[in-house]
Every structure is written in C-alpha cells, then in structure tokens.
Computed example of a mutant assay.
Amino acid sequence: MLASLSNLLIYTAIAVYAVAFLTYAGETALRTTRRSTAPAYLGVGPGGPEPSPEPLSSEPLLPDPHDRIRQRADWLGAAGTNVTIVGLALIVTATVARGIAAQRAPWGNMFEFALVGAVALTAAYLAFLARRPVRAFGVWIVGLVLLALGMAVTVLYTPVDALVPVLNSYWLVIHVAAAITGGGIFSVGAVATGLFLVRDRADRRGPTSGRRRYADALPTSTTLAQVMHAAHMLAFPIWTFAVLAGAVWAENSWGRYWGWDPKETWAFITWVLYAAYLHAESTAGWRGRRAALFALGGYAAFLFNFFGVNLWISGLHSYAGV
C-alpha cells in the first residue's frame, strides 16, 4: 500500500517539477528578450531584480513596456519557486513512504539514491535561494531534478525489498546520507560554475551583438564566483566525511579500510579534483576560469561514480543492482 502510494507521489512530483521547469524557463525567456533591459536576478529579495530609480521629470509618465516584462518575469520566477517547494514536499513524502514500506533507510539502491538525491538538490537550491540571488539557477536545478527522477522511474526502478546483508548496517544511514547531502550541494556548485563560465566569457568578449543576452540576465560573475566557492566549501568537508565513513564501514564489513575498489577509487578521484579546485581558488593565477575547470571535473567524477561505476563496472559495491 505504502509502496504504491510512494510511486504515485513520485509521478505526481515529476509533473509538478515539470510545471516548475516551464515556469522558470518562461522567466528566463522574458529576462533574455531584446526588449527587456532589467538587470535580472539582482537586488532585493531572494533572486529578485533591483528596482530601477524613477526618472526625475514633471512630465506625465507612460507605461514602460520594460516594467511590464520585468513584472511578468518576477511573477513567473516567484511562481516557479513556489511550485518547486510543492515538488520538494511531494518527493520527500514519497521517500518517507518508501522507507516506511521497506522498514529501513530509503537509500539502499540506485533508485532510492536518485530520489533522495533529488530531495538534497532541491533543498540545497532553496537554501541558497533564501540568502543569495540564485534564481537564475532554477531552470537548471529543476532540469537536473527532472532528469534524476526520470531516470529513476524508467531505468533505475527497483521494487521495495529488504537490504542485502552487507548493507544492513547503521553505517548505511551515516555514509550514504553524507554522500547524498554533499552531492546535492556539489550539484548547486556545478550549476554556479557553469553559469560563471558563461558570464565570465561574455564579460571578456565585451558588448557584442545579441549573443550575450542570456549572460546579461545572469548575476554578475563576482556573485556567481561567490556562490560557486561557498557551495564547494560547504560540500567538500561533507564529502570528506562520507569517504572516511565509507572506509570505516568497509573495515567493519570486509576487514580493511581501503582496497581500491572501483567505487572507492572514483570517490577518491572526486575528492582529489575538488581539493584541487579549492587549492586553485587560493592560488594567485589559478582563480576563476582555471579553478572552475577542476570543479567541473570533480562533478563529472561524482556523476560517473554514481552512474558509470554502478552500471558498467563490477566490484565489491555491485551488490544492490540498480
């Protein structure tokens, strides 16, 4: 009963996230239209634009079409955020229902990991949105969530079942929860990194034609760099803890802390690339674009560790199927 309810809630959440994606896409389209000159995603409020000063004139003012476009974009952005919150509530409820149905932590296979990963990614985005102007991330974040949920229900789906013996440990809660939390924040950092590279390149090229309309709708490169750095600074120690917790779990299960199993190897590669990014950020001459490449490399390694290693490479961690 609860397993069926969980599945129904997942499909409902996918539909809600699809609405949020279209709403955020509409906001982005309005902010990048040729008629819109509003400095998008900056200023007061989470992700909202900065109000333009009123002109000093005694003549009657006609309605400004740019103001109407800006207002519509603001409305769509706020609506997208509200719909995203509804989607988060649905997927959280679906995950809890699956955990109760299985009578265990709901992250014992790739399907469940994708569900909880969608929760972590959405929650991380909303947490950043509450403090920084990152609503420009919305269309990309929700797109990633939809991709994760779509793969979960089509490729990765696994019926509710008991854990295999090696997973039946309290370390499952500790290790996997840390990895999922770090992964969600790393995903926000990856989006910030990609958008930083887009904005930085446009700024370097200067005001040329309409190619930079999307870049102009993004936060400044300084703001994006700050979000990029903050996300990775927050996620890196969590990922470090996840790797260490996994080593302790391995010692409890297999009698050794580290054995260069493919999963362990790629977790370490991910850690090294993110460590290289943080080191590059503190090194003169490597900040900015060069450092960002390490961050994107780390995220690519993180994704391969989840999908590639689990689906294509055999090892000691190949016990849960999908």
Rank of each mutant, 00 (worst) to 15 (best):
F302L: 04
G298L: 10
A94N: 00
T208D: 12
V96M: 07
T81I: 07
R104L: 05
G150H: 10
V16P: 02
T223N: 08
P63E: 02
M110H: 04
L195I: 02
P65F: 15
A162F: 05
A89F: 13
G108Y: 09
F186E: 05
S36N: 15
M1L: 08
S209P: 13
P106F: 02
G99Q: 01
V19E: 03
G80F: 09
W249P: 15
L224A: 01
R70N: 08
G189K: 11
L167Q: 13
V272G: 13
A280N: 11
A38V: 13
F241S: 02
V176K: 08
V142H: 07
V322G: 15
N305I: 06
L126M: 01
G87F: 10
L303R: 08
L195V: 03
V227L: 04
V155L: 15
A105V: 09
T122S: 15
A300C: 06
A202V: 01
Y214V: 11
R199A: 07
A148R: 05
T283R: 13
T81G: 12
W312C: 00
T33Y: 14
V248D: 07
E59L: 14
Y319P: 03
S36P: 02
A120R: 07
D74V: 05
P237Q: 04
M228E: 09
S52G: 08
T28E: 11
E59V: 05
I141S: 08
S4K: 12
R289Q: 07
L2G: 00
V19R: 13
A202P: 06
T223C: 12
W260P: 01
L76C: 13
V19K: 04
P39T: 02
W75F: 06
T28P: 15
V139T: 06
L129K: 06
G297T: 03
